[in-house]
Amino acid sequence: MKHWKLAAAAIFLISVLLPMGAQESHAASKYVVLELQWEDGRTSRIKTLKKDGVTYGSFYSLGNMARLHSGMEQDNTVVLKSDQKRIAIRMGSSIAEVDGRKVDMGREPVRYMSHLYVPIRFLAAALDGEVTNRDAKTGKVTVTGLNNYTDIFYGGGKMGYSYTIRAAKGDLEITNAYTNQKTTIPLGMKDINANTHNLTQNFNWTPKGLLIVTIEYTNRETKEYDLYTLIFKNQGLIRKSIAHGLMERHETLKPDGTIQLIDDHNIRMIEDESGNVLNVFAR
């Protein structure tokens, strides 16, 4: 009786974990190498499923690499999405939806060994890439041109505040961790492209307690970057500067404690603690 109870519990658990319409594959399957080349410079190699002559890609794994968020919707629909991309598949159906368009995947999704797979040719195209090579001997498949859809860049938390930049708007969003109150600072950045650029946020404290936030948006190919510098006093913004198309490195906090702000036309020397402008020089 005890064994029967354990078996019944196991069957119930499997029925909960597998969505209706998702069939666990028991057909002859094997793993082959999948090489992924991303537009942001990454290259990754993973094992992927080949079944009945069709190569599949892990829906969740590739979605995560593409910086998409996964979730379930009604009618057994699984989605990958960001502000820039939405891919939806329905268990038991070969028809998917990519950015509002119906697309025939050719095969239904397959659940195998706790992974959810869809045809790699479909998934590559949905991520703006393509299958460029198949090795007839080894079965290895190479996919190129895959996109990175990062929609939020996290700068981390400082003194009870978190700093984020949303790709679609390009503004700095500061959130109080205790009250959840948000402050938005316009930066003038638009359509941040994680495939071609790096976006980094750095935080420095001056000797007299001012917080300097520097944001660099760098073209990976040319190394040219835009520099956004913000100075805060008691969590209030007191100075801001924006310089475009820089090539040389810029030292914001000088050894003597003064702060150097650079924009497209001038360099301002700022006094620590007060934030007052000491000198202005033309670039």
Rank of each mutant, 00 (worst) to 15 (best):
K2P: 00
A9I: 15
I14R: 04
L17E: 01
A22N: 04
S25P: 04
S25R: 08
A27F: 07
A27G: 10
L34P: 09
E35P: 00
R42T: 05
I46W: 02
K47I: 02
S58E: 11
Y60C: 03
L62T: 02
N64M: 13
M65A: 09
E73W: 08
Q74M: 05
N76Y: 04
V79E: 02
L80K: 00
Q84C: 00
R90Y: 03
M91Y: 08
A96D: 04
V103Y: 05
G106P: 04
V110A: 08
M113N: 15
S114K: 14
R121S: 08
R121P: 00
A126C: 10
T132Y: 05
D135V: 04
A136V: 11
A136R: 14
L146H: 03
G156I: 09
Y161P: 03
E173A: 07
N176K: 12
I185R: 05
P186A: 03
P186N: 06
L187V: 11
M189I: 14
K190I: 08
I192F: 07
A194I: 14
T214L: 06
N219P: 02
R220Y: 07
R220P: 10
T222G: 07
E224V: 15
Y225L: 09
I231S: 01
I242Y: 14
H244A: 04
G245R: 09
E248P: 00
H250C: 01
D256I: 13
V277I: 15
V280R: 11
